[in-house]
Design a protein around this nucleic acid. Structure first.
Lengths: 189, 189
DNA sequence: GTCAATTATAAGACTAATCACATTATTGAC
DNA sequence: GTCAATAATGTGATTAGTCTTATAATTGAC
């Protein structure tokens, strides 16, 4: 029952279609909430039924028609209520860490390969988020934007996402290096 | 279908009961996999049925009897297979970030309160993980332990958890300070 | 000119996770 | 002496999430 709040929060910056929302959940929103497109379409339908968002049809020539959604006053009130309640601690799941946990009992070469892949993935995401942050703050400096910008919520969550991916990349590189060194040391014996 | 691998990885350091496993999922394993006790009991039953773990009863006087589980050769082979396959990207969900995303549209005071709570929670976890790391490496220094220790998987995942919580705490404090300053500036007008 | 990707929206079947509850004895706190 | 917490293991109902599949026009790559 909390995907709805993530959807409401994502719709605060302007009306979006289900498809556009799915794109947002692939980029900025991915920093704090994971959801598949099918879930989003279903959740939008529920939110509209409950009067928390309202949709309107946009007719298009070259593309299929779409329905875009806006947060209603009731939706805003629901977000307000949600913000005041205390939430659950962060929910994490990561295949890669499971593999590292088992690193001493499985082929270390495979684990090193996964760590290297993930480091590269994190690096790509760091660049992506850097660009997104620049776009959000426009020509202003970060300090200036955070002090006087009109909409800083998405900027702050992207900052968290950026720090997360940097931590990820650094940890992956260090762990891979350590496992590599141990493998080399073992081979020398 | 991946909770099973997290359970197998957690059982690598010695036989555990369902109850003990649940404790592990509250501490060390929590750094990379979230699961409730009910899931663990159910998963252990499935793993035993599939021959990936084997259980044995331990009779106790003062406490209820328990069943402890060990990873079988088939279980180890399954982990090996899992480590070589490429996994999904990390799965994150965080109520708090949803609230921060909406910070410009809801009562900022509430969001600041949640950020402060989370910072304190992260700080407590940092101390906890610091203690766990000391316990894992014994009297050795970190460098020395990582080079020559016999079991470094859990240590590496705890390091990631520690860095995550440190990033969390720092971001929470900074975000709370920024929102606080904006509130003060707004009040002065 | 062909092929894959993008835009746009789902339904239906299935699997996984959560919520609420149930049991029983002991230990430790106040 | 009472009360909460800990140790120990689940079941059953419900909700949430994933996997597979479907449609159909257009744009961009090679």
């Amino acid at each position: 029952m909390a995907l709805r709040h993530a959807v409401l929060a994502a719709l605060l910056d302007g009306e979006l279609s289900g498809y556009q929302l799915a794109k947002a959940f692939d980029l900025g929103v991915a920093n704090f909430w994971h959801a598949l497109p099918q879930q989003l379409y279903a959740e939008l339908a529920r939110l509209e039924r409950d009067g928390l968002v309202s949709g309107r049809e946009i007719v298009q020539d070259t593309r299929p028609n779409k329905r875009v959604f806006t947060v209603t006053d009731a939706g805003l009130a629901e977000l307000e209520r949600f913000a005041a309640a205390d939430g659950k601690p962060s929910f994490i799941r990561d295949d890669l860490l499971v593999k590292v946990q088992a690193a001493d009992h499985v082929d270390a070469g495979e684990v090193i390969a996964r760590l290297t892949e993930r480091a590269a993935f994190a690096d790509a995401k760091i660049r992506l988020l850097g660009g997104l942050l620049r776009k959000l703050r426009g020509d202003r400096g970060e300090e200036e934007f955070l002090r006087h910008g009109e909409r800083i919520g998405p900027y702050l969550t992207c900052l968290r996402g950026l720090a997360f991916e940097q931590g990820n990349r650094d940890w992956c590189r260090r762990s891979a290096a350590i496992l590599e060194e141990r493998r080399a040391a073992h081979a020398r014996e």
